[in-house]
C-alpha cells in the first residue's frame, strides 16, 4: 500500500488526537486512545480500498475507536470540568485567551450528543458535508440537518 506509520502520524496525528480529545478527557488515556486509533489505521490499511480519501478513512476509524473506548471505560467520567482539562499546573490567569476559548470549545463539543458531536468534529476539521456523510454512513440530507443543529448549538454556547 506504501503508507508508512511515520507518515500517517505526521499527516493525521493531530486530527486523531483532536477527535480522541472529544471522547476522552484524561490526557494519559487520550494518548492511549490515539495510539489505539493509529494502530487500527495502520493495520487496517491492507483492507483500505481507497474509495474514499485516507483522511475520511482515518476519521471514521478514530470515531469508532473513540466510541469503543468509551464503552471500555464507561465506569470512568466521560468528560472533566473545564478547569480540570486545562494544562496541568498552569494558573487560569496565565492561560492565553485563545487557549481558553479552545478549551471551552472542546468542552462544549464533548457535551454534544454523539450524532451531533461526530458531525461537529468533522466539520471543525474542515470536512465537507459529502465527506461527513461518507465517513459516518449518513445520507447527505441527514448529515446537513445534523450539521446545522450542531453548528447552532455550538454557536449559542460559545457566544455566552
Amino acid at each position: 500500500m506504501g503508507y508508512q506509520i511515520d507518515q500517517i502520524i505526521a499527516d493525521y496525528g493531530p486530527l486523531i488526537s483532536r477527535i480522541a480529545a472529544t471522547y476522552e478527557a484524561d490526557p494519559v488515556e487520550q494518548k492511549d486512545l490515539v495510539q489505539e486509533v493509529l494502530l487500527a489505521v495502520w493495520q487496517g490499511l491492507s483492507v483500505f480500498k481507497g474509495e474514499a480519501s485516507l483522511k475520511t478513512y482515518v476519521a471514521r476509524i478514530a470515531h469508532y475507536r473513540g466510541v469503543d473506548h468509551v464503552r471500555r471505560h464507561s465506569n470512568k467520567p466521560k468528560s472533566q470540568p473545564l478547569d480540570d482539562s486545562l494544562v496541568s499546573g498552569a494558573k487560569l490567569e496565565e492561560i492565553a485567551d485563545k487557549n481558553l476559548k479552545l478549551q471551552k470549545l472542546l468542552s462544549e463539543v464533548r457535551q454534544l450528543p454523539l450524532p451531533l458531536r461526530q458531525v461537529a468534529t468533522l466539520a471543525l476539521e474542515g470536512f465537507e458535508a459529502r465527506e461527513i456523510a461518507d465517513s459516518l454512513g449518513l445520507t447527505p440530507n441527514n448529515a446537513a440537518v445534523r450539521l446545522n443543529r450542531a453548528k447552532a448549538t455550538l454557536k449559542e454556547v460559545m457566544s455566552k
Binding site: L102, L105, L124
Partner: peptide, 22 residues
C-alpha cells in the same frame, strides 16, 4: 471556531517518534 479547533492545541504533547515506536 474551525481555525481555533485546528490549532493542534490537543496534539502539542504528542511525541511522534515515541508514538511510532510504541
Amino acid at each position: 471556531m474551525s481555525s481555533l479547533w485546528q490549532q493542534d492545541g490537543f496534539a502539542n504533547d504528542l511525541n511522534m517518534d515515541q508514538l511510532a515506536t510504541s
